[in-house]
Amino acid sequence: MKLTLRLWRQRSARDTGRFEQYQVADISPDMSFLEMLDSLNEQLCAERKEPVAFDHDCREGICGMCSLVINGLAHGSDRGVAACQLHMRRFKDGDMITIEPWRAKAFPIIKDLVVDRSAFDRIIQAGGYVSVDTGDAPEANTVPVPKPAAETAMDAAACIGCGACVAACPNASAMLFVAAKVSHLAKLPQGQEERRRRVRSMVEAMDREGFGNCTNHFECMAACPKSIHVTFIARLNREYLKASTRRSSEDIH
Protein backbone atom coordinates (compact mmCIF):
# COMPACT_ATOMS: atom_id res chain seq x y z
CA MET A 1 0.00 0.00 0.00
CA LYS A 2 0.91 3.62 -0.41
CA LEU A 3 0.06 5.93 2.45
CA THR A 4 0.29 9.59 3.31
CA LEU A 5 1.36 10.22 6.90
CA ARG A 6 0.59 13.49 8.62
CA LEU A 7 2.96 13.41 11.58
CA TRP A 8 3.59 15.68 14.53
CA ARG A 9 7.21 16.85 14.47
CA GLN A 10 8.66 18.77 17.39
CA ARG A 11 12.37 19.18 17.97
CA SER A 12 12.25 19.56 21.75
CA ALA A 13 9.96 20.47 24.63
CA ARG A 14 10.53 24.15 23.87
CA ASP A 15 9.86 23.90 20.13
CA THR A 16 6.28 24.74 19.11
CA GLY A 17 5.94 21.76 16.78
CA ARG A 18 4.04 21.29 13.51
CA PHE A 19 2.57 18.64 11.26
CA GLU A 20 4.65 17.33 8.38
CA GLN A 21 3.53 15.06 5.58
CA TYR A 22 5.40 12.02 4.33
CA GLN A 23 4.66 9.44 1.65
CA VAL A 24 5.42 5.79 2.32
CA ALA A 25 5.18 3.03 -0.26
CA ASP A 26 5.40 -0.79 -0.23
CA ILE A 27 3.59 -1.10 3.08
CA SER A 28 2.46 -4.68 3.63
CA PRO A 29 -0.94 -5.22 5.28
CA ASP A 30 0.81 -7.68 7.63
CA MET A 31 3.12 -5.03 9.05
CA SER A 32 2.39 -3.66 12.48
CA PHE A 33 1.83 0.07 12.79
CA LEU A 34 5.27 0.48 14.35
CA GLU A 35 6.93 -1.51 11.53
CA MET A 36 5.30 0.93 9.12
CA LEU A 37 6.91 3.79 11.09
CA ASP A 38 10.24 1.88 11.03
CA SER A 39 10.01 1.76 7.27
CA LEU A 40 9.33 5.51 7.18
CA ASN A 41 12.41 6.08 9.34
CA GLU A 42 14.60 3.91 7.07
CA GLN A 43 13.42 6.02 4.18
CA LEU A 44 14.17 9.26 6.08
CA CYS A 45 17.65 8.00 7.04
CA ALA A 46 18.36 7.10 3.41
CA GLU A 47 17.39 10.65 2.48
CA ARG A 48 19.70 11.91 5.28
CA LYS A 49 16.77 13.42 7.15
CA GLU A 50 16.02 13.26 10.86
CA PRO A 51 13.99 10.10 11.66
CA VAL A 52 10.75 10.39 13.58
CA ALA A 53 11.08 9.76 17.33
CA PHE A 54 8.39 7.47 18.77
CA ASP A 55 8.25 5.35 21.91
CA HIS A 56 8.23 1.56 21.69
CA ASP A 57 9.77 -1.38 23.48
CA CYS A 58 8.30 -4.87 23.66
CA ARG A 59 6.06 -4.57 20.59
CA GLU A 60 3.80 -7.25 22.00
CA GLY A 61 1.35 -5.12 23.95
CA ILE A 62 2.68 -5.57 27.48
CA CYS A 63 5.21 -2.81 28.13
CA GLY A 64 3.00 0.26 27.70
CA MET A 65 5.61 2.30 25.86
CA CYS A 66 3.82 3.01 22.59
CA SER A 67 1.83 6.20 22.75
CA LEU A 68 0.38 7.24 19.42
CA VAL A 69 -2.93 8.94 18.72
CA ILE A 70 -3.83 7.56 15.31
CA ASN A 71 -6.57 9.38 13.38
CA GLY A 72 -7.89 10.83 16.62
CA LEU A 73 -7.94 7.58 18.65
CA ALA A 74 -5.35 6.64 21.28
CA HIS A 75 -3.64 3.39 20.09
CA GLY A 76 -5.80 3.48 16.95
CA SER A 77 -9.16 2.00 16.07
CA ASP A 78 -8.80 -1.56 17.43
CA ARG A 79 -10.19 -2.09 20.93
CA GLY A 80 -8.08 -3.76 23.58
CA VAL A 81 -4.70 -3.47 21.85
CA ALA A 82 -1.80 -1.07 21.99
CA ALA A 83 -0.57 0.67 18.83
CA CYS A 84 2.18 -1.95 18.45
CA GLN A 85 -0.46 -4.60 17.83
CA LEU A 86 -2.46 -2.53 15.39
CA HIS A 87 -1.86 -3.90 11.90
CA MET A 88 -1.71 -2.11 8.60
CA ARG A 89 -4.53 -4.29 7.26
CA ARG A 90 -6.82 -1.88 9.11
CA PHE A 91 -5.92 0.79 6.52
CA LYS A 92 -6.58 1.11 2.81
CA ASP A 93 -4.20 1.95 0.00
CA GLY A 94 -4.01 5.73 -0.41
CA ASP A 95 -5.18 6.51 3.14
CA MET A 96 -4.00 9.61 4.92
CA ILE A 97 -3.12 8.85 8.55
CA THR A 98 -2.77 11.59 11.17
CA ILE A 99 -0.39 10.63 13.99
CA GLU A 100 -0.10 12.75 17.14
CA PRO A 101 1.49 12.28 20.56
CA TRP A 102 -0.52 11.98 23.80
CA ARG A 103 -1.65 15.52 24.51
CA ALA A 104 -1.85 16.52 28.18
CA LYS A 105 -0.21 19.16 30.30
CA ALA A 106 1.01 16.42 32.64
CA PHE A 107 2.68 14.57 29.71
CA PRO A 108 5.04 17.15 28.17
CA ILE A 109 6.37 16.30 24.72
CA ILE A 110 10.08 15.37 24.69
CA LYS A 111 10.45 15.02 20.93
CA ASP A 112 8.10 14.34 18.00
CA LEU A 113 5.74 11.60 19.24
CA VAL A 114 7.55 10.89 22.53
CA VAL A 115 6.04 12.24 25.74
CA ASP A 116 7.33 12.27 29.31
CA ARG A 117 5.09 10.07 31.44
CA SER A 118 7.02 10.47 34.69
CA ALA A 119 3.84 11.93 36.20
CA PHE A 120 2.56 8.33 36.40
CA ASP A 121 5.77 7.25 38.17
CA ARG A 122 5.31 10.00 40.76
CA ILE A 123 1.71 8.86 41.37
CA ILE A 124 2.99 5.30 41.94
CA GLN A 125 5.72 6.63 44.26
CA ALA A 126 3.00 8.33 46.29
CA GLY A 127 1.44 5.02 47.29
CA GLY A 128 1.17 2.42 44.54
CA TYR A 129 3.15 -0.18 46.49
CA VAL A 130 3.02 -2.39 49.57
CA SER A 131 5.72 -1.41 52.05
CA VAL A 132 5.95 -4.66 53.97
CA ASP A 133 9.14 -6.69 54.19
CA THR A 134 8.06 -9.97 52.71
CA GLY A 135 11.28 -11.93 53.03
CA ASP A 136 11.06 -15.13 51.05
CA ALA A 137 7.90 -15.73 49.07
CA PRO A 138 5.41 -17.26 51.53
CA GLU A 139 3.71 -20.57 50.84
CA ALA A 140 0.97 -19.75 48.34
CA ASN A 141 -2.01 -20.73 50.47
CA THR A 142 -0.87 -19.16 53.77
CA VAL A 143 -3.02 -16.10 53.11
CA PRO A 144 -6.21 -17.21 51.40
CA VAL A 145 -7.60 -14.83 48.75
CA PRO A 146 -11.15 -15.45 47.56
CA LYS A 147 -11.27 -16.21 43.84
CA PRO A 148 -13.52 -13.24 42.90
CA ALA A 149 -11.22 -10.83 44.78
CA ALA A 150 -8.17 -12.31 43.04
CA GLU A 151 -9.88 -11.99 39.65
CA THR A 152 -10.92 -8.36 40.24
CA ALA A 153 -7.44 -7.47 41.49
CA MET A 154 -5.95 -9.10 38.39
CA ASP A 155 -8.32 -7.20 36.07
CA ALA A 156 -7.09 -3.96 37.64
CA ALA A 157 -3.45 -5.07 37.72
CA ALA A 158 -3.58 -5.56 33.93
CA CYS A 159 -2.89 -1.81 33.62
CA ILE A 160 0.42 -1.28 31.80
CA GLY A 161 0.56 2.45 32.57
CA CYS A 162 0.68 3.54 28.93
CA GLY A 163 -1.41 6.67 29.51
CA ALA A 164 -3.96 6.05 26.74
CA CYS A 165 -6.70 6.79 29.30
CA VAL A 166 -5.30 10.30 29.74
CA ALA A 167 -4.79 10.72 25.99
CA ALA A 168 -8.37 9.68 25.17
CA CYS A 169 -10.07 11.55 28.00
CA PRO A 170 -11.69 14.80 26.82
CA ASN A 171 -10.42 16.28 30.12
CA ALA A 172 -6.98 14.58 30.14
CA SER A 173 -7.88 12.90 33.43
CA ALA A 174 -5.77 10.09 34.89
CA MET A 175 -8.62 8.56 36.89
CA LEU A 176 -8.63 5.17 35.13
CA PHE A 177 -4.90 4.69 35.77
CA VAL A 178 -5.14 5.68 39.45
CA ALA A 179 -8.35 3.67 39.83
CA ALA A 180 -6.66 0.54 38.47
CA LYS A 181 -3.63 0.90 40.72
CA VAL A 182 -5.69 1.66 43.86
CA SER A 183 -8.24 -1.10 43.19
CA HIS A 184 -5.58 -3.71 42.50
CA LEU A 185 -4.03 -3.34 45.96
CA ALA A 186 -7.31 -2.64 47.77
CA LYS A 187 -8.65 -6.06 46.75
CA LEU A 188 -5.71 -8.04 48.13
CA PRO A 189 -4.84 -8.80 51.77
CA GLN A 190 -1.32 -7.38 51.41
CA GLY A 191 -2.73 -4.00 50.45
CA GLN A 192 -4.95 -3.56 53.49
CA GLU A 193 -2.41 -2.00 55.89
CA GLU A 194 -1.92 1.12 53.81
CA ARG A 195 -5.26 1.09 52.05
CA ARG A 196 -6.56 4.48 53.23
CA ARG A 197 -3.29 6.34 53.19
CA ARG A 198 -2.56 4.97 49.71
CA VAL A 199 -5.74 6.23 48.06
CA ARG A 200 -5.45 9.65 49.67
CA SER A 201 -1.84 10.24 48.68
CA MET A 202 -2.24 8.81 45.17
CA VAL A 203 -5.22 11.09 44.47
CA GLU A 204 -3.28 14.05 45.88
CA ALA A 205 -0.31 13.18 43.65
CA MET A 206 -2.65 12.89 40.65
CA ASP A 207 -4.09 16.34 41.35
CA ARG A 208 -0.62 17.84 41.79
CA GLU A 209 0.44 16.67 38.33
CA GLY A 210 -2.24 18.79 36.63
CA PHE A 211 -4.41 16.05 35.15
CA GLY A 212 -8.05 16.94 34.46
CA ASN A 213 -11.11 15.65 36.30
CA CYS A 214 -13.26 12.67 35.39
CA THR A 215 -16.63 13.65 33.91
CA ASN A 216 -17.62 10.09 33.05
CA HIS A 217 -17.31 10.09 29.28
CA PHE A 218 -15.82 6.56 29.53
CA GLU A 219 -13.49 7.23 26.57
CA CYS A 220 -10.62 5.88 28.71
CA MET A 221 -12.17 2.41 28.81
CA ALA A 222 -12.58 2.38 25.02
CA ALA A 223 -8.94 3.39 24.49
CA CYS A 224 -7.37 1.16 27.16
CA PRO A 225 -5.27 -1.57 25.53
CA LYS A 226 -6.12 -3.78 28.52
CA SER A 227 -9.83 -2.85 28.43
CA ILE A 228 -9.79 -1.80 32.08
CA HIS A 229 -13.35 -1.09 33.14
CA VAL A 230 -14.64 2.23 34.49
CA THR A 231 -16.18 0.30 37.38
CA PHE A 232 -12.73 0.77 38.96
CA ILE A 233 -13.27 4.55 38.85
CA ALA A 234 -16.46 4.12 40.90
CA ARG A 235 -14.42 1.94 43.27
CA LEU A 236 -11.70 4.62 43.50
CA ASN A 237 -14.34 7.26 44.30
CA ARG A 238 -15.68 4.98 47.05
CA GLU A 239 -12.25 4.22 48.44
CA TYR A 240 -11.32 7.90 48.48
CA LEU A 241 -14.55 8.97 50.17
CA LYS A 242 -14.23 6.30 52.84
CA ALA A 243 -10.57 7.09 53.46
CA SER A 244 -11.19 10.83 53.65
CA THR A 245 -14.24 10.96 55.86
CA ARG A 246 -13.42 8.30 58.43
CA ARG A 247 -10.51 8.48 60.83
CA SER A 248 -8.65 5.25 61.28
CA SER A 249 -5.73 3.83 63.22
CA GLU A 250 -3.58 4.29 60.09
CA ASP A 251 -3.72 8.05 60.58
CA ILE A 252 -1.94 7.79 63.94
CA HIS A 253 1.37 6.65 62.45
Binding site: F19, V69, N71, G72, L73, R103, H217, E219, A222
Partner: peptide, 9 residues
Protein backbone atom coordinates in the same frame (compact mmCIF):
# COMPACT_ATOMS: atom_id res chain seq x y z
CA UNK B 1 -5.66 17.34 19.12
CA UNK B 2 -5.81 18.15 15.42
CA UNK B 3 -8.05 15.10 14.99
CA UNK B 4 -10.07 13.68 17.88
CA UNK B 5 -12.66 10.92 17.62
CA UNK B 6 -14.79 9.52 20.42
CA UNK B 7 -16.26 6.07 20.99
CA UNK B 8 -18.20 5.97 24.26
CA UNK B 9 -19.24 9.48 25.15
Amino acid sequence: YAVQRTRET
